[in-house]
Design a protein around this nucleic acid. Structure first.
Lengths: 350, 350
DNA sequence: CTGTTAGCGCCTTCAA
DNA sequence: TTGAAGGCGCTAACAG
């Protein structure tokens, strides 16, 4: 005798409902997938399923199907706004396609990142999205080993599926803006060069556009971490002679700088200008509101997920570009002679 | 002929390595699980596994085992610092225990939250953690239906496994502090009462402690959303006669208020005090730094996960309390006569 | 249109 | 200790 109701999910199998409906397993299976059954039996089956609350066993199904409808997502960390947005974007695409994301966090460690990729591949996910902090040769090798598609975001590497904002272009956008605002000497408060995207490309883009055709322009580089506080602690070294603007590689860094200046009674932007990258909401709430380059991480997530889906189905991807948006707010002031009008655009499509 | 190496994971089965090692499937299986095999065969098997890079098929294993080692996590949203911390905490416990979290996001919709729980139950996870925005009778009913443990966090409900910070106590902590700082008239800028934890408990705790034994004390309630901007927009209504302090139900709300006051040239805390809840890092960077009650969401995550594990293994949980920490920073000033010394403690264990 | 027959890859008695 | 056999729940030919 079988528990007829109330009891938990998962106990009743396709066989049970076949018996109850007086048909065979395969008929039920057909009903469940693409029909080809008489309306009469379909109705009976439907009724039985209804009243038993039958749910197909996920693992049995996957074992047969060879496709898990699961996408592994490897993240460097969890406690970051940009990661949150990225995930929202990924989910926005994955969910309607019937896929589900499953996460593993690498805690900013390369070793763990690799491990996580391997772990996912063992679990038979259909694809892996990696928000990497740095793609090494080992990543490349591993990626080739795997028999499932990998899509990287956050970092870029020749020959791999990658999708990220154009950090170099973002840097240029900021560099061009500050140049046009008349700044000549800047401090770029950046992060480790191990992070190629943020540590190198973004910085280099800035320097290139800032210095372009101006031998007198000077950018001093200083390194810090990703959080407010480590930036705050670099505060005392920031004010070198002639510097008129501090550019943080991320908004968080710039926020730390803003705080430091506030405590020292140094007024922004009157005494010195500050700018950042990311365009987080919080930058609009502090005062002065932080001038920044906005990255639409949610869109990055969406495109990355689409790239993944295309890779799975074998479709060719037409992803278009990732727009960069310049947020001119309050933390930068114009210095020296006014630049020629109309020399800076506010939105670039790269 | 079989591809001997290089090729992807997942193709080689237990049968393959049995053949290669000249033993039976069951022997290999035994080797994989708890041994009981001669060292000789064990060595041969080990070698073969090594060189083939064999990985047990996840789904086949789960199908047999009835345990997935997967914990479903239902989140209201992704783009929030507290959710990120919560997840970090959960991962910290789950991972060493050999479990893995798998996420579904409800986008703050009750309907989706319920759907997500059902979805997980179908997938055969071993347990579900729900960071809920409001536990309804339907949640209660559904929880009873399921044959796997559910643990709620974020909200509380009799008869369900719940684990959350004590919002009432947090409210009291703030209320007591402001009272002791001499404030008499406050505006509590809170959220919808549909969110019982934040919308009701936190507020009520504040009111109770703030007004305790002081018939002259007055708290005006105003409702807003969870983001800076909706709080910012309530700015014009904030300054009612005699009000000396604005308490935001979350730090984000208070940040919006701070910005509004800044724009109006209203000085904090000289002209008016502001305080919040959450104790996010960013509150330390704005100026004045925001006085707040700190919630250790990472710890909440850890305890929640532990609760889950205990529920799975049938162990009884000894979870202890969740500490609340008062962050006295710069945004509140003392008004009127000094309160009797030593009447406020800075840390409460609840 | 439907039932029968095979497995998917793994774990687990059950004898040997 | 080991191998053979059975089955987890489901899908996918294959005949009818």
């Amino acid at each position: 005798m079988r528990k007829d109701s109330g009891a938990g999910t998962q106990k009743v199998t396709i066989q049970d409902i076949a018996d109850l409906a007086g048909v065979s397993k395969s008929t039920v299976s057909r009903y469940l997938n693409r029909g080809y059954i008489s309306e009469a039996k379909a109705a009976r089956i439907r009724a039985v399923i209804e009243q038993t609350g039958y749910q197909a066993n996920f693992f049995a199904k996957r074992l047969k199907m060879k496709r898990s409808k699961l996408i592994g997502i490897v993240l460097p960390r969890m406690d970051s706004v940009s990661v949150g947005k990225l995930l929202s974007g990924i989910g926005r695409i994955l969910e309607p396609a019937g896929y589900q994301g499953i996460l593993l966090v690498s805690q900013l460690q390369e070793e763990k990142e690799l491990e996580n990729i391997v772990k996912f591949s063992q679990q038979g996910v259909d694809g892996i999205i990696v928000d990497s902090v740095g793609i090494t040769p080992r990543h490349v090798a591993l990626t080739r080993q795997l028999d499932m598609p990998l899509v990287y975001t956050g970092q870029q590497r020749e020959g791999l599926r990658c999708l990220k904002i154009d950090d170099y272009a973002a840097g240029r956008l900021m560099g061009a803006y500050l140049r046009q605002m008349g700044h000549v000497r800047a401090v770029f408060l950046g992060v480790s060069e191990k992070d190629r995207a943020v540590g190198i490309d973004r910085k280099q883009g800035f320097i290139d556009a800032f210095a372009e055709g101006r031998p007198e322009a000077r950018v001093t580089f200083m390194e810090t971490g990703f959080d407010f506080f480590s930036a705050y602690n670099r505060g005392p070294e920031l004010l070198t002679a002639g510097t008129t603007v501090i550019v943080g590689a991320t908004d968080n860094i710039s926020l730390g700088v803003l705080r430091y200046f506030h405590e020292r009674g140094i007024r922004v932007p009157d005494d010195i200008s500050v700018a950042g990258f990311g365009g987080y909401d919080v930058g609009a709430v502090v005062y002065p509101a932080l001038t920044s380059v906005y990255f639409d991480y949610e869109l990055v997530g969406m495109k990355t997920a689409q790239y993944m889906l295309d890779a799975i189905t074998g479709a060719t991807s037409h992803l278009g570009g990732l727009p960069l948006h310049f947020l001119e707010r309050e933390s930068v002031r114009r210095v020296g002679a006014p630049a020629p009008a109309g020399s800076a655009s506010c939105t670039a499509l790269v």
